[in-house]
Design a protein around this nucleic acid. Structure first.
Length: 586
RNA sequence: GCCUCCGUAGCUCAGAGGAUAGAGCAGUUCCCUUCUAAGGAAAAGGUCGGGGGUUCGACUCCCUCCGGAGGCGCCA
């Protein structure tokens, strides 16, 4: 497929040289949105028109006439077949190319050959990308905002791996600071040393919420106590550190289940508490280079305003580090260890200024890898009734959302599954599909209004719709009695098969999957995969309702089975990239 | 005050310089004696926030104004 694109570009270039005696390198070939405009199209005639002062339509006609004589072919089993079936010129000057049926049918063997790897490519080979995501505070349970972060981070990691990058999935625990002391302080006062009687992160979260309530009543007192407790931590007071270990340990223990439910995992966990003494050398260096300076209060400030970025405090006036101090060190250590091609921070967009400051600092410090850092800024998740607020108690817990979707799916599956064998397992997978897909189908930079009732609806552009489409396809394969794995060895070019309109449409779209995979990696946009899958599933369902497979005759039946099998494979691969595992039956 | 992001059908969203701006939901019609109706088919729904500009061509790029969200020195 990629080859066909390159081949076409070369031939267009050649035709320009031949007709106009011009070296023209800037060949742009696109995929037209409208099927009527063919599979590939080029606008070179418009670009050339400026150079040689002739009407675009005339140029397009001359070029297409030339290219028509070129006999562009691909090889299959020792024979040559044309790549294109037609090359058309359309006013005001487009040249449209349509793939031949031979070429399209040949893609099927490609899918069968690569199966679980169909759509992947080699472009990231030998390059490391760190994807830092999730990064919660271990003092309370995860909420739906974390879910979006988790889904984005894990999905982007999958997509990059599929493009052959060597991905390091990193979680960075913000386990050091006064925020942790909030839960600790309340537990110390009111916990009576008891063990959790519920999911441990929720248990810890109760104390966090308790703090918010108490703080309303008597802010000065609590602020003081909190600061005192953190001082004890900093000084290494044994009793306090033990409490800290206990509280954060419960949070981690509870999250384990949440992460599992969400199909999220990590290769490396870094802890902020290991970086409490870090970063100071770099900051000394920054002062030396006059990037940062000490102000009247004694705090170290990076002067960034001349670059259009707000100034940033690097060290408190009492000399203690803050978040950025440690983040500086972490990135530097990471580079020395992994020599990364890119480091992606999956963090919501409210932190955009922070990352601008961080990245600018690295640039000013002269680190050559400064431009390899990338902030994936995603939009905020809010509720129909407004923003979430831990103070107002309107934070929607990730476990509760999942549980609710899970219950609803269980009902659905109970009502529709023919043999209810794996009710719980199947429902859980579908629930996750609903949750993950619901968030990932939306462009990361958009805010999401998270409507519980919307997610619990499973028609239209949803994860369950895609799962259902896959299950229908697999049902056909199962009833046919053939082994999907045996198809590859029996495949041929189906020269005698005349395809129906719906089949051509399905197959043409299937061929664009690898390009979508590549683009979504380049732009770190899982929603491109989601959009592809939805459009593809629609085409499949349309084909499904109009074209009979099992009742077709001999060769035709076999061809259609192959088409169904490949379609299922593409849906499976695409969903995998979104962190969704298919079910065979539902 | 300065900076960033967003504004597309009643609602939720695609559209990353190309051809007649597309889906889903809601509402209106059809289709289960035929491979899973969580499905399919059809019609209806729009001054792409307003106004300028660049271009053969703008939802897309630039400027400006209006609306919404967010961020701006010792929180993370």
């Amino acid at each position: 497929m990629e080859d066909a694109l390159l081949l076409l570009k070369e031939n267009i270039k050649k035709s320009i040289k031949s007709v106009y005696d011009l070296e023209f390198d800037d060949i742009f070939v696109e995929r037209p949105e409208d099927e009527k405009h063919g599979d590939l199209a080029t606008n070179v005639a418009f670009l050339l028109a400026k150079k040689i002062f002739k009407p675009p339509l005339k140029i397009a006609e001359n070029l297409s006439h030339e290219i028509n004589g070129y006999d562009i072919c691909f090889e299959c089993d020792g024979a040559n077949y044309p790549v294109f079936s037609s090359i058309e010129v359309v006013s005001p000057g487009f040249i449209n190319f349509r793939f031949s049926d031979y070429f399209l049918k040949n893609q099927l063997s490609e899918v069968l050959k690569k199966n679980d790897n169909y759509g992947s490519n080699k472009k990231g080979q030998g390059r490391v990308i760190i994807v830092e995501y999730s990064a919660p505070n271990p003092n309370k349970p995860l909420h739906i905002g974390h879910s979006r972060n988790n889904f984005l981070g894990s999905s982007i990691s999958e997509i990059l791996s599929f493009n052959s990058y060597n991905v390091v999935k990193m979680n960075y625990m913000n386990d050091w600071g006064t925020h942790i002391c909030k839960s600790m302080l309340m537990y110390k006062k009111y916990g009576n040393g008891r063990d959790p009687d519920k999911k441990p992160d929720h248990f810890v979260g109760d104390f966090y919420r308790m703090y918010e309530v108490e703080h309303e009543k008597n802010p000065e007192k609590l602020d003081k106590e909190l600061a005192e407790m953190f001082r004890e931590m900093e000084q290494g007071k044994k009793e306090t550190l033990e409490l800290w270990k206990k509280i954060t340990g419960w949070a981690y223990e509870g999250w384990k289940e949440t992460y599992e439910n969400e199909n999220v995992s990590f290769d490396v966990c870094e802890y902020q508490s290991n970086y409490t003494k870090a970063g100071k050398e770099i900051i000394d260096y920054a002062i030396e280079k006059e990037i940062a300076e000490k102000d009247d209060s004694g705090a170290i400030i990076a002067r960034l305003e001349k670059y259009g970025i707000p100034d940033k405090v690097l060290l408190r006036s009492d000399g203690t580090p803050i978040y950025i101090t440690q983040d500086i060190q972490l990135a530097k250590d990471n580079f020395e260890k992994y020599n990364f091609e890119k480091r992606i921070y999956v963090v919501d967009k409210r932190q955009s200024d922070y990352f601008k400051q961080l990245f600018k600092l690295f640039e000013l410090l002269g680190f050559k890898w400064a431009d390899r850092l990338y902030h994936l800024a995603y939009g905020w998740v809010s509720l129909p009734e407004g923003a979430m607020s831990s103070r107002a108690g309107t934070v929607v817990n990730a476990d509760d959302v999942f549980e609710k979707i899970f219950e609803l799916e269980q009902e659905e599956v109970k009502n529709s599954l023919k043999e209810v064998t794996d009710l719980e397992k199947t429902s859980k997978k579908i629930a996750l599909a609903a949750y993950r897909y619901g968030m990932l189908k939306i462009d990361p930079k958009q805010d999401i209004v998270f409507d519980m009732n919307g997610v619990t609806r499973f028609e239209g552009n949803t994860g369950p719709y895609l799962m259902y489409t896959y299950a229908r396809a697999m049902s056909i394969i199962e009833k046919s009695g053939i082994e999907a794995s045996s198809l590859e060895s029996n495949i041929e070019l189906f020269e005698n098969i005349k395809m129906e309109e719906k089949e051509v449409s399905l197959l043409r779209f299937m061929c664009t999957f690898p390009e979508t995979v590549s683009l979504s990696a380049d732009t770190m946009s899982p929603h491109l995969i989601a959009n592809f899958l939805y459009n593809f599933a629609q085409k499949f369902n349309s084909f499904y309702s109009e074209v009979p497979v099992l009742n077709a005759k001999e060769d035709l039946r076999f061809f259609r089975l192959v088409l169904v099998c490949c379609s299922a494979q593409v849906i499976k691969n695409g969903l995998k990239l979104l962190g969704i595992n298919v079910v065979e039956k539902m």
